Amino acid sequence: MSDISDWSAAQALVSGICAQHGRLDILVNNAGISRSGLLGDLGEADWDRQFGVNVKGATALIDAAARQWRTQAPTPRAIVNISSPAGPHPIPPIGLYSATKAAMAALTMSAAQELAPLGVRVNALSPIARTRLIEKAPQAVQEMMAAREGYDPFAPDHAARLLLCLCLPDARFTGRLLGCRGDEVYLYRPWSADYRLDNGGAPWTISALEQALGSLPQQDMCWMMTADGLVEQPWPPTTLG
């Protein structure tokens, strides 16, 4: 068994698959861990392990796949990176995990641009689904997401179907983050520089810049994926003290 956070091990894994099967068409970066902890309580090992598995491991596999694909003719290929609703909307006490999942979304956008000439579509999937990570969640979350008879919105099968759809040779998306909760599918918009200030080509003074920044909104309304579905709320929080 390989440690996915080991760069050389990840490279060897892809090389071995290509040697055995002759090619690699689909890569799914699903490995992930989460360690709860607030800033001021986290240790370096927490940072290293979460970024090592969640980000470095995915990057190493994408890099290894790109090395193989650059030696071959372009053909439809797919990469799906598993992100999280906590990526675009970080929450404590899993802020570090949230940062790794936001990094996965950014990596997806970058890789989609780089690998497009090779026929590779790269997307990220942000599911709300019952996984082993839920076993470490608060009791209330475990109860909410417990298996149920009939329609089960948290069954992993829902996310698996969307993942497979993103891997189809004629799938039309690349560089996008999609979310799902049961039969509900969401398409995220990327960060957008919606507001602009300028000083007519002259350097700002601190006081003038402070006044100009005062005209911008402290918060924007956004839609957040939660276990209860979409929730509209202002973001980011502004309460201090």
Rank of each mutant, 00 (worst) to 15 (best):
E44P: 13
L187A: 08
N81C: 04
E149P: 15
Q50D: 05
N29H: 03
Q11D: 13
R196Y: 13
T238D: 15
G57I: 01
G200F: 07
L230Q: 14
A64T: 03
D25P: 09
R121D: 02
W47S: 04
L61Y: 00
T131S: 10
S15K: 11
D170V: 07
N81A: 06
W69K: 04
L240H: 13
Q50V: 07
A171F: 12
A86S: 06
E210C: 13
V141Y: 05
S126E: 01
A102V: 04
S15V: 09
R35G: 10
A171S: 09
A112E: 08
T75A: 15
W204H: 14
Q211F: 10
D194M: 14
L197W: 12
S84G: 01
A212G: 07
G200M: 11
I26T: 04
A31D: 04
L209Q: 11
A45F: 06
D170L: 12
D3K: 07
W223S: 13
A160K: 04
A202T: 07
M145W: 01
P169E: 10
A116E: 13
R35D: 11
M145D: 00
A73T: 04
M224K: 08
I94M: 07
A45R: 11
D6Y: 03
M144A: 13
D41I: 13
A124S: 00
I79N: 00
S126H: 01
W223T: 04
I79M: 03
P156L: 08
D41K: 12
A65C: 09
S215M: 11
I134P: 14
R121I: 02
L96P: 05
S84T: 00
W191M: 15
P92H: 05
L118G: 14
G214H: 02
D48H: 11
L178N: 06
R49W: 14
G175W: 01
G57S: 00
G150Q: 14
N30G: 07
A193G: 03
E44S: 13
R121N: 02
K136M: 09
A99Y: 08
T59L: 11
L162T: 08
P156K: 09
F154A: 10
R130Y: 06
T100E: 03
D157T: 15
V120P: 00
P76T: 09
V185K: 02
I26V: 10
G182E: 05
A86Y: 03
Y188D: 02
Q142Y: 14
Y97Q: 01
D220I: 09
P90I: 01
K56P: 07
L133I: 00
Q11N: 09
T108C: 03
L115F: 07
Y188K: 01
P138M: 05
I4E: 05
A19S: 06
A193H: 03
L27P: 05
G52M: 03
D41V: 15
S5L: 03
K56N: 14
R67G: 12
L163H: 12
A171R: 06
L178C: 07
